[in-house]
Amino acid sequence: MNTMTYSKRLNDRKMDELRPIEAKVGVIERADGSAMFKIGNTWAYASVYGPRNLYPKFMQDPQSGILRVNYNMMPFSGSGERVRPGANRRAKEISMVSEKALLPVLDLKEFPNSVVDVFIELPQTEAGSRCAGICAASMALADAGLNMKDLVAAVSVGRVDDKLLVDLDYSEEAYEDGPVADIPIAMMPQSGKITLLQMDGEVTKEDLRKAIGMGKEACGRIYEVMKKALKEKYEVQ
């Protein structure tokens, strides 16, 4: 029987400690809004184009603009083999849940029949890529001057063996010596409401509640980082 518990994270990270974060806004000059969000070795770019013309016409909504998110990993961004370019099911699903994670903060009613396009690209990934993408997209949408009642912050929380942790790295996601749960979560920090919640693994109801609490606290910290990055771009030059 395995009596070892998970006691030491890489780089001596504490259980509720995030990997080092780098965030910058306005990095893609052709876009209407853009940002870069790097957490540990996971690196995401996001650019926003819109509101703009929407084709094909059948997708247009006469009551509101629509949000369209596309998540993509660059071919050299995987931790092992090359990722063959082109649509794949995982990327399609992540695009969709990311879109649902961001939509609640936006109000696109004043842009009927148009689209706000968000493109998320990752040059380098090492766990937590969808969360990094959502953080980058969130800053990019704010940079694009859209009405947003809050930013959206995202992080993965989870469980490795007997420990609950924040911001799982690659070795923790792939941990094989005991039960693991990987829970990506996105929140609106102002209201504390959850806009993305997924789970892979095994976890009890109580641990899930605790993990979400840790996630809420971590998202609050990430919000401060995003706030700082947005202000830095616009402050006195």
Binding site: V105, A142, M148, K149, D150, L151, M188, K227, L230, K231
Partner: peptide, 8 residues
């Protein structure tokens, strides 16, 4: 002051 979405 520059203010971001969600800021009180």
């Amino acid at each position: 002051e520059i203010v971001v979405p969600g800021e009180i």
